[in-house]
Amino acid sequence: MKARSVLLLGSLGAALIAFALASPGVIAADMVDPVADAKAFQNFFFQKFPNVKHEDFVNGPYSMNEDMKRQWQEKEEFPPYEFALEAGKEMFSTPFKNGKTYADCFPNGGIGIRQNYPYFDTGEGKVITLELALNRCREANGEAPYSYVKDEMASLTAYMAYTSRGKPMEIKIPDDPRALAAFENGKRYFYTRRGQMNFSCASCHVQSPGERIRAETLAPALGILNAMPIYRSEWSGMGTTSRRFVTCNSQTRAVPLEPQSDEYRDVEYFLSYVANGLPISGPGARP
């Protein structure tokens, strides 16, 4: 009887010690650590594609395949986004009815700042994307907002991206639990399966980059937003980051969310942050 009690107490003690040792690990795994996440994210792609130069990941499918890269380099001599870029430059410098311009709404007159978007606004407690900031600028100056998925917004962001080409993505996460929650929410959105096809963003862009899905070569998730906005042959036109999220959802047979919904803003925050250090390459062109 005594031996049995000793054995029981001993087992209980061992279990308690094991639980105490294991719990910090469990808590740590659930804690939000954007720095560690970004490092793991980048290492995953660097190891999966050891022959791709790190700065090349921002060129999406063209970084995955030598033939496609050559085609793209030829295409870049007369890039299909050129008209949008010209239009964006003109729109950017044309004053609103009140005489002010977009330059009045942004740091450094809006030139060379794409790499800092999206950012977390600690006053508002939300993620602010470049598209959202542009429409807020318009509304603050008495102009009607543009559609988030159509040409005008793509033209404006194309010009702003162009003035930032080559600058490394530099997204900051302030010391604010709401910013960490936004990052975590974006991460959750990225990995969550949705739609009748039961696909997450990661199903294509983490598990299968470089593979074909029908006629398309899938882009790696790393640096996928650095090239935004993009001209897509499939769209026969330009598309914004919002348009990309909406069409990705539709392709998996999920009902898309509203452009600039919290989820889309948060996933843009997550994807941009984990691409920190990689150059802005927008506007881009894709098949």
Binding site: K187, Y191, T192, R193, R194, Q196, S200, V206
Partner: peptide, 17 residues
Amino acid sequence: SIFQAVSEKEAWKAMEI
């Protein structure tokens, strides 16, 4: 789709890098 949303509340973590 409801089943998917409920199961993905935890299942997404399995995909995380």
